[in-house]
Design a protein around this nucleic acid. Structure first.
Lengths: 199, 199
DNA sequence: GTCTATACACCGATAGAC
DNA sequence: GTCTATCGGTGTATAGAC
């Protein structure tokens, strides 16, 4: 009873501190680069010493793992939102999924590197965090299936196309729209290829 | 005369040592990862101490830069070879360029990371090394132009498609062919989109 | 002229006092 | 739960041996 209430408050406090640490890490990642995040800098930002962080995260990679989960939870949210919009045409729906994922990835380089690239050398997401990424892909897969895109190879191609445009955009024209402008065309091309009706 | 001959031998010796160091670095990169290359390990492999490497390379990044140049020189060679093969059809030529670049990239993960990704954090290629990369792209551009693909946007799309397939292949099915199998289809799709005649 | 020995500043991580 | 102190490792710089 009293013990329960107390334990709950303690849990909230711990959780809030974790959140504060992660926010500090994100802030550093966003304006100095994902790999430039050091435990000493994160600690300083939250008014601690570096070793104290180990009371809240088992290791630096555990911190990256929580950030990885953060990212995919946000992505899952966005893609789930898309899956709820009433479809007009299969072609338009496919483009909407692609555009949403593209914009999400391009909006935050550090996040994209953590989610989709192997920028951090020793880092492997935990099974738990990876499951969120899988759930997101499943949501997309379900949305595509509703458009009649069910072949695994078609889904693989859908994914590769988005990845190629995203990487080209971030690598060669960050902040611009040189490849963003090609997205609709690319997925019209894809829709033509799989035999979707033209509008 | 004698001085010249001697200076030449010294130059050759220096150049050979450089080559030996780079080969050692490549060996480590290939079987332990690009970022796992440490100066101490490279030095040990060539029978030196780490600081001695600074007599041959200005910094570790200078070593990476030489490896970056290595990679693009090899790629330029391969793509130049392709540009010399007599064309059959525009469609076949486009696919040949794409396939050659894809296979080159997928054959060596460490090399691909150095050439096309930002795996090494502080590393920026020198203008001299970058010029080789540009020359390679120009060779591809010229080859595509000979097929009637001249629009910059078409070239951008060509590049993004290859990048997407390569990254998906390396990230999600290394050593396999899940996305490799989609390459011909992808560039047929591309050829259709830009209005190339069907065979 | 080349290379070695030594040192520095920084990193992630751990041990133990309070 | 946070601290200080410290460890082994990294890239890098430089003085000095040969």
């Amino acid at each position: 009873m009293l013990a329960d209430a107390k334990r709950d408050r303690v849990g909230e406090r711990r959780s809030a501190t974790r959140r504060e640490i992660l926010d500090a890490a994100w802030a550093i990642a966003r304006d100095s680069g994902l790999a430039q995040v050091t435990l000493r800098d994160v600690a300083e930002r939250v008014g601690m010493r570096a070793p104290s962080l180990y009371r809240h995260f088992e290791s630096k990679n555990a911190m990256y793992d929580a950030m990885f989960a953060d990212s995919w939870i946000a992505c899952l949210e966005v893609m789930t939102e898309v899956s709820r919009t009433p479809p007009t045409s299969a072609r338009a729906t496919i483009k909407l999924y692609a555009r949403t994922f593209f914009d999400f990835a391009v909006a935050d380089l550090a996040r994209h590197q953590l989610m989709n690239q192997r920028t951090i050398v020793g880092f492997e997401p935990s099974a738990e965090s990876y499951a969120v990424a899988v759930a997101t892909l499943d949501t997309v897969r379900a949305g595509l299936a509703a458009c009649g895109v069910t072949e695994p190879e078609d889904v693989d191609l859908f994914v590769a196309l988005a990845g190629g445009l995203i990487d080209a955009q971030l690598a060669n024209d960050p902040g611009g729209d040189r490849w963003s402008r090609l997205l609709d065309r690319t997925y019209d091309m894809f829709a033509d290829n799989i035999g979707l009706p033209t509008p």
